[in-house]
Structure formats: C-alpha cells, structure tokens
Design a protein around this nucleic acid. Sequence first.
DNA 1: CAGAATCCTAATAGATACTG
DNA 2: CAGTATCTATTAGGATTCTG
Lengths: 137, 137
Amino acid sequence: MRSGHHDVTIECDRSSPKDLAACQSISNLLSRVGDKWTMLVIRLLGTGPRRFNALKREIGDISQKMLASTLRNLERDGFVSRVVTPSAPPQVEYSLTPLGRELQAPIGALAQWTVENAGRIDAARRTYDAGSPRRAA
Amino acid sequence: MRSGHHDVTIECDRSSPKDLAACQSISNLLSRVGDKWTMLVIRLLGTGPRRFNALKREIGDISQKMLASTLRNLERDGFVSRVVTPSAPPQVEYSLTPLGRELQAPIGALAQWTVENAGRIDAARRTYDAGSPRRAA
DNA sequence: CAGAATCCTAATAGATACTG
DNA sequence: CAGTATCTATTAGGATTCTG
C-alpha cells in the first residue's frame, strides 16, 4: 500500500455539484496539511533542502515511519521533491517544489492569523472550560 | 470528558522557543479546521445561523455525535456561539462569532488556492501513482 | 543512510439506543 | 428538538526489527 492518507470524502452542500468537488479538495488538503507532522516538515523544508535523517533529527520525536509517510504524501501531492544521489551511503534530499512553495503563502496567512489570535482562542477556551461544568442556568 | 479533540503537541524547531508555541497553535488550529466536518460546518454557518437539526439535514451523512462534537469544539474555541431559547421544543441556534467570521478570511484564501490548484495536485498524484510501482531506475 | 515490514496500542468515527 | 451514553470498527501513530 502506498497511500495511508485520509481521503476525507466530505459531502458538501448538495445544491451545487461543483461546490461539492471543491469542498472535497479543500477538506482533503486541510486534512493533509493539518495532520500531525506535515506543517512542520513544510516549514523546515521552507528554509532549505534536507536529508531524511536531518529532518528526523530536527523534528526530534517523530518516528521514521511517520516521517517517511509524511514525506511520501507530500511527494505524491507534488509539494515536495525527492532526489536520490546514488552514492556509497545512499543520499536522498527532500525539498519544496514550486507548488509546495506556492502553498506556503496561504498556509502562512493562516499561520499568521493563528498566531495573532491565539490569545483570543485561549481566552474562549478558558471561558468555556470554566463555565461548562454546570448548566447555562 | 469535554474535550475529544487532538491537541497535537508538535515539537517545533528547538532553536526558537517562541516558534515552538506558535507552531503548536498553528498545528492545533489546522488539525481542528482540517478535521472531517469543521470546514463544512463553518461554511454553512457562514451563510447564516442554523439550528442543530438544520445543520444535520444539510450535511446529510454526519452522525449527531460528530455534529455535536464538532460544534462543541468550535464553541470552545470561540468560533461558534450557541444560543438556547428555552421553549416547548428546545431551540438551539448556532452561529459564527466575530472571531469565527474573521477566521473565514485566511481559511477562504487557502480554500481558494486549493480550488485553483486542485488540478496540479491531481496531476502530481497521477504521475506519482503511475511511476512508483517499479523503482526509480 | 534511508527506508520497508511487522506488530501493537490508543484515539476516533459511526451506529444505535436512550433522555430532558 | 437537541442532545448524551455506550459500543464497536477503523485508523493513526509509534516501537521494533530488518534490508539495500
């Protein structure tokens, strides 16, 4: 098996069929980008190409299975390229493709919004967590 | 137990501690927004307030458990507000908060990018799926 | 070094049934 | 109507072992 990713298959608004396909694509991408390691790998590769174990070291607590799978998914979607240099110890370098670099813009916007508003989200959570044990009265 | 969401707890680039917290927030939000139903619920609520079963009907194949959980998470994060009108049949209306409406912008940008580039992603996948069975030669 | 294969556990989605 | 509780099936993720 080569896949291993979600393929969310959301049903969108039934009324518009084009909207359905769009919503599927969006949710699929968000699932991918929102999974446990993808975001981090994209950010690291955004600062320059890396080899497998370099990525692994920098991330620290990722298993090689998850790193391999994350990279494979990113490669399959065309966001990351994988270049093998057949040498004594095999050398494989990963880097962002043009598509991957383009993706950084909208991702970055969302990331920036998140950072700027993390405080508001945290506050909402604290309010919710404080007020919820007993009913709304 | 009230939570039920991930709390991804990504380890970011060790070198910068502020980057760590930021990356955690970002990944957490992406996980939330990228889950199976959140995106769709936000989109629907973006067109106007809805009651629980109205959302359920429009989405179609979501279980009430998942809808309840998705809405609870969105409410906890401050993106959705829940207003109970205590009447004969209880009436609960969900709508986007100001924070939720602000979130629509960066989400929308990512969504639009995805729609515009879905073809490129698909092409990359076809290429990958076609070429991978045998090794890179 | 760069993975693949295997095994195992914990979390999650969904179906069903029940409640205020 | 608007949920919660419970149970089961599926999945994601990690540890370990092995290989080119």
